[in-house]
Nucleic acid binder design. Structure first.
Lengths: 185, 185
DNA sequence: AACAATTGAATGAACGTTCAATTTTAGTGT
DNA sequence: ACACTAAAATTGAACGTTCATTCAATTGTT
């Protein structure tokens, strides 16, 4: 029965995004999911595996969201903007996923996970590779182009979700343009 | 005796940067610091306060490092580059501080801390304010200018410190220029 | 001697995990 | 439809461990 498994994953996501790893015991996950403590170990070997499964699911969610409406045919800048807006819009409406993801990526836990997302990540590298070939992007390691494009977006989304500032459409557009300017010659 | 207090703070810094919050018990901090478990509570009320004190110390360290050689007299771009290189160089040679800081900022713990760094942060806002007045920067919330300038730097530093790629002088310079391009008209 | 610093064993609570017992599901024969 | 049964799902109390914190006793300092 997949229902119970996803219920556990969803509870874990929202609990950890609000309370952190260290402050969400298995017993609380069980109670919030409406299941018994023991059954979690029927679906996941232990807490670590539960967190890793959730991490993979969240990571895939981000990548799939970015790839929505993606087409290899579109011109470079339009494809860039597609990725960028997809990412920011998805993040803005999935705060728990953002907080969980950031928390996990910045914890030593992540060092034990060596997942392979090469298939999902291919379109990004294709985009950056093409921009480099065409001489549109500054000659840089693709990872650097990636971070110049998306790191400010993530940072601003987190500020918005924490209530520090409001990200309206005008700000979003300015940011997207600024990121494009950062990576183009 | 300040020696013991700073020894505790330093051990905590390196332990947490390598093992994470949840995996560094007070007993291990004590052993690593060469003190008894009890004495920690002579210098800090509890674990939370110890972490918050460390966080403040680390945060101040970053800000002071960025302000090295700072002068209100320098032209805008030179001041920007001063901040930027100060930040990146300091980060590159203080990996434990980077990892601790990132871990802490992305955990729910940070929500309980409301520190006031307005004094230390003033020069940054002055820089962005001046650039906006002079029409050199794109018209944006100063926080957005800040994130466009430093979020990619942080992300690339973390990748370097994790061994994913190497940040040499050429890459550093390209990144700094790209960030400048992101925020200028 | 008075006070501060320090020790480390003891305490009690919290937590991850286990497992014997119970309930539910699915399959088979009548 | 029904009865029966074996397997799978589920429960929750119990276990053993780990951990933050305490404190009576000891050591160091002024």
């Amino acid at each position: 029965m997949k229902d119970k498994r996803t219920a556990i994953l969803e509870s874990t996501l929202s609990l950890i995004s609000e309370r952190g790893f260290h402050n969400t015991p298995m017993s609380l996950i069980a109670k919030t999911s409406g299941v018994s403590a023991g059954i979690i170990y029927h679906y996941f070997a232990n807490k670590d595996e539960l967190l890793n499964e959730l991490y993979k699911e969240v990571k895939l969610g981000f990548m799939r969201a970015m790839l929505a409406n993606y087409s290899e045919e579109l011109p470079l800048q339009e494809r860039f903007m597609m990725f960028w807006y997809n990412y920011v819009r998805y993040s803005l409406s999935n705060s728990a996923r953002v907080f969980f993801h950031e928390q996990f990526e910045n914890s030593p836990l992540v060092k034990h996970v060596e997942e392979d997302f090469s298939e999902e990540v291919a379109p990004f590298f294709h985009l950056f590779g093409q921009g480099l070939e065409e001489g549109v992007f500054i000659p840089l390691h693709p990872v650097a182009l990636y971070e110049l494009s998306f790191a400010p977006a993530t940072a601003m989304v987190k500020r918005h979700l924490s209530g520090v500032l409001e990200m309206d459409d005008a700000l979003m557009q300015s940011l997207a343009d600024a990121c494009w300017n950062a990576i183009t010659l």
